[in-house]
């Protein structure tokens, strides 16, 4: 009982701490990366609670794809113009 309780407390407080850090990050990039970390930690929590189906989906979609979408949109919003036709703007940057 007690070692599992320790793991539960660690995972739950880790999720709260990561959410806090992600919301208070100075840069948007940091915020997105910490959100992806929160998604990965959530994957561990779903696995701990026996929700293996949800854990697989969260690892692939919640942590991976949402982070990639947010980073791609961040790059688009940071560009000086949206309809820039230079070759550099056409490449799929994700950083």
């Amino acid at each position: 009982m007690s070692p599992m309780l320790f793991v539960d407390g660690l995972l739950a407080s880790g999720a709260i701490a990561l959410a806090l850090l992600s919301l208070n990050a100075r840069e948007v990039f940091t915020s997105i990366v910490l959100f992806v970390c929160l998604g990965l930690l959530a994957t561990l929590i779903w696995a701990r609670l026996g929700a293996w189906d949800v854990a697989i989906a969260e690892a692939a979609i919640g942590a991976g794809l949402t982070g990639a979408l947010l980073l791609a949109a961040r790059h688009r919003l940071r560009e000086p113009t949206s309809r820039d036709d230079t070759p550099a703007a056409r490449r799929p940057h994700v950083s």
Partner: peptide, 20 residues
């Protein structure tokens, strides 16, 4: 806007955690 969307997704994780 990206911070708002990250925050909405964090809300979602909270709800999912309660459901699971």
């Amino acid at each position: 806007i990206l911070r708002k969307l990250v925050a909405i997704n964090i809300m979602g994780i909270g709800v999912f955690m309660l459901l699971i």
